[in-house]
Amino acid sequence: MGMFILKRLGVMALTALGLTLIVFYMTNLYPNLEKLAKTQGNFRMSETEVSTWLNNRGYTRPLLVKYGEWLGVLPGYVIEGTDGEVRARCAPQGQSVEDAPEYCGVFQGGWGYSSVFKEPASDIMWKRLSLTGFLMLCALLLTIPVALLIGILAGMREGSKTDRTLSTFSIVTSATPEYVSGVVLIAIFASSAVGLKWFKGSATKAMESPDFENFTLPVLTIALFSIGYIARMTRASMTEVMTAQYIRTARLKGVSFGNIVLKHALRNALIAPFTVIILQIPYLLTGVVITETLFNYKGFGWLLVQAAGNNDIDMLLGVSVVSVIIVLATQLISDIGYVYLNPRIRIS
């Protein structure tokens, strides 16, 4: 088990390296740098002004050197610009170049400096990540019990009326992407055209003071898709368990139906949904980006869109590292959890 985890961590590190290198390459393509220069400097810069701007800030050096600096295995640049100003990678605006450390990459804990927000990238990331974490937590707290309940009730008696109603519900929600369910929910519950106006169509206020009125719709939007998906998986695993030999034996022994479901079937039926739930978290991340854009909730997803839209290189790299860690960590947890939950695998 120890070897297995170590190996997986190694693969994780390798993946993170490969991924950041790709992001680094894409964001450092010349048209992207030109866009960066124009949004940071001014939009009417000429070609030569753009290239001087980029030269002065070290953007035009070889890709791998810049990547090494970002990682922290190469010393950060110190460039005396054509305008006479000396700029250093490790001395962001306002700091003197002499005091700056030689290395300032990820390995030294420096995540660089956001060109859009004019703040260290890690500060922004933590702030936004905590907001999104809260949103995802609420969504999961709603999703898991509801989805499991629907799945168990539907799978308990295959083909019954309850099963058909609940299965229809879950297949419809799992076919609804967030930007559709969000729009429909806003239309029904928040628009003045329908007139219910129970909730707010924007979650901007929810960042400081989340309450029932402004936080319900975003949570519901994220949760709906996963509810459908997890419920379907739970139903499938439940129906499979309910046809197993040992359940039939229990029935023949005269155990009541409620007892069979709760004490005999559930344990085995919940192994598969566990993996699905854990693996659903990375997918939630995509849903979060859409939902945060739709409801204007400035969390991690909103940050991703801002960083990508403005070619904020350091910010984007940070965002990608965090997301790759989330994706791979959830995979690892689901694998380990599966082994522990399933005695058949644990013993072999």
């Binding site: 991924l19 992001v23 964001t27 991703l304 839209g309 997301s323 791979l328």
Partner: peptide, 10 residues
């Protein structure tokens, strides 16, 4: 491992 939307934006 890429978030789909990041990939699209790239």
């Amino acid at each position: 491992a890429f978030p789909v939307i990041l990939l699209f934006y790239l």
